[in-house]
Design a protein around this nucleic acid. Sequence first.
RNA 1: GCAGAGGUGGCUGAGUGGUUAAAAGCGCCAGCUUGGAAAGCUGGUAUCUUCACGGAUACGCGAGUUCGAAUCUCGUCCUCUGCGCCA
Length: 426
Amino acid sequence: MLDIKLIREKPELVRKNLEKRQSKKYLELFDNLLIVDKKMLFLLKETEELRHKRNTITSEVKKLLTEKKDATEKIKQAKEIPLQIKEKDQKLTELKQEHNSILFKLPNLLHKSVPFGKDDSENKEIKKEGKIQKQDFDLIHHGKLAADLNGADFERAVKISGSGFYFLKGDLALLEQALIRFATDLLTKKNYELIFPPLLMRRKPYSGVTDLNDFENVMYKIENEDLYLIATSEHPLVSMYMDETLNEKNLPLKFAGVSPCFRKEVGKHGLDERGLFRVHQFNKVEQVIFCRPEESEKLHEELLKNSEKLMQSLKIPYIVVNVCTGDIGVVASKKYDVEGYSPREKKYIEVMSCSNCTDFQSRRLNIKYYSGKEKVFVHTLNNTMIATARALRLILENFQTKKHTVKIPKALRPYLNGLKELKLKK
RNA sequence: GCAGAGGUGGCUGAGUGGUUAAAAGCGCCAGCUUGGAAAGCUGGUAUCUUCACGGAUACGCGAGUUCGAAUCUCGUCCUCUGCGCCA
């Protein structure tokens, strides 16, 4: 949610920022907001004046009555006011609702360093790391290999849950756990607090953390209940402090959330998105930070570094892109994507997403801290530490051998009882 | 699911139709004090609106009664406790 005060004081600045998104819809909403806001303030003033009048007469009545004088004339005067107030109040409530609904639909202001562009093809690469392995043989599709190694069963999962689900089995399941544990260890060493959040959330906190369109396009809803399956642990973690004022001394708060994530992933997808890529349920370790506004840019870089460290440890080649204005989405003010190298597709694919949401979520959720002088909305940041399904895919591709085995990255071996290679069991 | 209790500031908690929106305590901020701190003392510590004076709002939310509601009535949401069910 945007700051209405800023909109009132510098409407042109906000409008220019919205223009970067190349969406007529937002500009129309914004212009409409300015009109509704003016009407609302005008009506607010009128109702306040009426209330003031009523309060004055009421206190006169009180005075007369305590002095045991006749107050019938004043009471008669006062009786007429509530009706007028009620009438104006109804209109005011409607305007306030409209006002609020527009504010909820407007996206966050973009940081000046966000590159201008129409879609993900115009994201700007800012870093390239890691050595691409030579693999002079035909790579097997990661899903097929996982099944061949008896590490995943897609067919039976389809039978009971439909496409986009899988059973992970044996050593591959162990590798899954190893990834989670390795990722959380990296974070807890840096004093990120480990959290297993609720997997179901009510709509109200949920609408504070996400794009409203996600409710239809992304999220699963529990029938006849006000509960949604979380699409990432970012959502419960960020809304955890809804309606709270945090102690400045405790900032920044840093968390490592671990949870399964549930997403509809509507639409049809190509071959390389089958298997472990575009799935309805996957496990993820997520980094979440609450901080003072002046710290958020620095901490955004820290979050990115954590993810890079992980990619480097796993020895998966990756690039970092600065996500452009057309691809950044509603919530983030600035976003980096980390893309891991897929030897099969011979390109980098998105595996992590690192966002500085500034005060966009905290305004909606009403999360502040007290600075000693005033209450200030905190900044919230989040970044994927690891999405296991995608990481498994990259491991199955990057470390696939000619003999159709998979070398396990050294950093993970201690978490797999020393296992070095995934092989077909006889 | 059933029954009971409850929802008041940053927190704990008092308040049951009109002295000032909130006693008391805790926390936090500023000042005094100190070599520095603790303690102590003094003051401050909700939101909106207005250039400002000021005004309005605020006791979960919504409606009603009333000149006037934290307080009375109805509805609703949520939480807790007990029972039931259950890994």
